[in-house]
Design a protein around this nucleic acid. Structure first.
Length: 477
DNA sequence: CTATGGCACGGATT
DNA sequence: AATCCGTGCCATAG
């Protein structure tokens, strides 16, 4: 077994065990929110683990003030825009964001969240209020105060009816209206409902590929399980089409309405509350001024410092032999967890350093500038195993300087930039170009793709074929 | 006959 | 080992 795959700076000294490897992998795979839960669980069942009320920098170990990241590790040395600071930031309050509207900004004016401390219920209520009668507003308020972290309705419609002495149909009508408000799909009862609300809305202003709606409403189960062939049969279409449908959904729709700024269709404005669901990594300019150095903040959950409980250690020595054995197990588990969390932070930091090095232009200037990058490349560069990178990237989300939250895997999307360029070409075309022509233009720009591929990219972007665009864009004379 | 979409294969990626 | 993605070939619609 390759053990050197976990070597980095801050190397843990003790020998690697297979348990260590297994746990590092599992932790790496988790988002910061999940990691927090894991830590809580461990704390509650392992007496050897202790949380002390003292914050330390996960990178350098210095003691920290009660708020914010390490002032030394997180500060750039200069205002040189070429400089990039990557640091691990211990956040002790991020899990309180959902619904509560708690603002991180109180002591940190330059914090990226600081703009609007508006909470989700208020934000949405303001939007629907004008459309509602007085009594309806109260129902809306009840709905909005009963949303869960992801923006789903966490209460039965029946209960709302009982409370307000009204009928389900009336409540449903209000729900429908709320779902059309800004975090599109908010107050849905499940993912399916949220997605449908979004499709509904999108289809009014843009073209939604066929079968998207039906796939969600009729066979969402199959879609989730990725049983594409079965789904294709049921809807009477090809597997190919279904894959595109699936792709469209993952690119354009947000299954969790309260995870703000997810995906591309939602354009955040100044009044948009930024964070209801925490991304794992934040990228922003120093002081939020474009042109300043980029700051990469890797969030790690912590409400203090995790350490081995000294009292437990002491008590261990006073135990009988057989009990010692048992206690020792807890102790080992605890120290393992601590080491693994360090390892996780370390890997995430190295990964981000590499990503920013390659994709800085994409982060600043957008889709067109995404460089081709594979996980394998990064893995080789950092001298870790490929699967380590895969796990580190999976399920993580990143907030870009423009406040959009994107999946981390976007940095490894092979076709994103080509698709963006292709979109531009088609937008600026002065006659409806067919796929072969588009292919030629791309080739002129140094991008070699097959004609067939152009067709696929078009489909992914929901762009119609040439003969139909001709009718849409260029009124036939 | 031309433009597009379906299927299937192979190589890369996870 | 399983899945994803680009591409070639062929069918079909226009």
């Amino acid at each position: 077994m390759r053990l050197n795959q976990y070597q980095g700076q801050n190397q843990v000294q003790s020998p690697m065990t297979s348990a260590h490897i297994a746990q590092t992998m599992t932790l790496l795979y988790m988002t910061s929110t999940e990691l927090l839960q894991t830590i809580d669980v461990e704390l509650s069942k392992n007496p050897a683990l202790e949380l002390v009320n003292e914050r330390r920098c996960p990178m350098c170990g210095r003691k920290l003030p009660p708020q914010g990241p390490c002032p030394i590790c997180s500060q750039p040395k200069s205002l040189d825009p070429d400089e990039t600071i990557v640091f691990v930031s211990p956040r002790d309050d991020f899990y309180n964001y959902s619904g509560s509207g708690k603002s991180y900004s109180d002591d940190m004016p330059e914090d990226p969240y600081s703009s609007t401390p508006l909470n989700l219920p208020t934000y949405v209520l303001r939007q629907v209020a004008p459309e509602l009668e007085k009594d309806e507003r109260e129902i809306a308020a009840m709905i909005l105060t009963n949303l869960d972290d992801d923006g789903f309705l966490a209460i039965e419609v029946r209960e709302i009816c009982r409370f307000h002495h009204t009928t389900p149909s009336k409540v449903e009508a209000i729900l429908k209206k709320i779902q059309r408000c800004d975090p599109l799909g908010v107050s849905a009862r499940n993912i399916k409902e949220a997605l449908l609300a979004q499709v509904e809305f999108l289809s009014e202003s843009s073209i939604v590929p066929e079968f998207v709606r039906r796939a969600i409403s009729e066979d969402f189960e199959l879609l989730q399980k990725r049983h594409y062939s079965e789904l294709a049969k049921k809807l009477g279409t090809s597997v190919q089409k279904i894959k595109l449908v699936s792709h469209y959904i993952s690119e354009n729709l947000n299954p969790f309405p309260a995870r703000a700024n997810w995906g591309t269709f939602r354009q955040p404005n100044d009044n948009t509350p930024d964070v209801f669901h925490q991304p794992d990594i934040l990228i922003y300019y120093l002081d939020n001024k474009p042109g300043n150095p980029l700051i990469i903040e890797i969030i790690t959950p912590s409400r203090g410092t995790l350490r081995l409980n000294p009292l437990f250690k002491k008590a261990l020595k006073e135990q009988s032999e057989e009990k010692q054995e048992e206690w020792k197990k807890d102790l080992d588990k605890a120290s393992l967890l601590i080491k693994c969390i360090q390892q996780r932070n370390n890997t995430m930091r190295q990964l981000m350093e590499k990503i920013v090095e390659v994709q800085k232009s994409f982060i600043i200037h957008g889709d067109v500038h995404l460089e081709p990058l594979t996980r394998a490349e990064v893995a080789e560069n950092l001298d870790v195993h490929e699967s380590t990178i895969s796990r580190a990237v999976a399920n993580k989300t990143i907030q870009l300087p423009n406040r959009k939250i994107i999946p981390m895997s976007t940095f490894f999307d092979r076709s994103l930039s080509v698709r963006a360029i292709m979109r531009n070409i088609i937008e600026n075309e002065n006659h409806a170009m067919n796929d072969t022509e588009i292919r030629k233009i791309l080739e002129k720009q140094g991008i070699q793709v097959a004609r067939r591929t152009v067709a696929k990219y078009r489909a992914m972007e929901g762009i119609l074929p040439a003969h139909l665009r001709r009718i849409e864009k260029f009124a036939t004379a």
